[in-house]
Structure formats: C-alpha cells, structure tokens
Amino acid sequence: MKLQQIISIVEGQVLVDARVDREISCAAASDLMSDVLAFAEPYSILLTGLCNPQVVRTAEMADIAAVLFVHGKIPEAETIALAQKMGIPLVVAKAPMFEVCGRLHQAGLKSCDVSCRLARL
C-alpha cells in the first residue's frame, strides 16, 4: 500500500513531507520502542502515540519508512527536526490508535509478523 493511500485512509496531516508515493510493506503499532525494534520490518509504517525523538531514531535504525502519530498528537519540535534531517515522513491522525489500526487493517494493510518473531526466539 502506498503511503499516500494510508494518509487518506486515516485522514492524516503531513508534518514532514517526503516521498508519499513510497510503498509500505506492513504496519507496527506500539508505544514501546524496544518492541518496535524487535518486530518492525523494513519499509513498514510505525503507528505510535509516543512523540519524542527516539521514535524517529527507532525508525532510522529499523529502516522504517514512515511514522504515523495517533490521537492528534503533534510530536516535539526536536522530533520533527530529526525526521527532516533523516528524510523520514511524519504524519498525524486525529483518530485514536484503535481506530487508526482498524481502518488500515480493513483497507488491507498487514501487521508486521509477530508470530514469526516469537517462533524464532
């Protein structure tokens, strides 16, 4: 699914604009960055309510393609600055986490495969 589609499905507002035509492989939703580092797949989108710069650092390390903040949370200025530097698009959606996940899942976006991770532990 293209990032552009995801933005329109969640009625998102683009905070850091970068290549919205990029393809998103799957989604990871969490406020725990350690979890994200453990199961997020490359080219995925991270859905989170956490707003600090570590969200962007996590995306950078795990090759996550975009970050979507839920519940209308606008991230800190430092977070936005870091995302601009790293070329990682940031989007904010008004809807809460459950609603955002529901809409995207219904539209066919898959989850980064946690069971696969557990099986290999």
Binding site: L32, S34, L37, T48, L50
Partner: peptide, 9 residues
Amino acid sequence: RELGFGAGM
C-alpha cells in the same frame, strides 16, 4: 518506560 524504553527486550 514512558519514554518508550525499558521493556526488558
């Protein structure tokens, strides 16, 4: 934990 870390992972 509120910063998103310390989950023991």
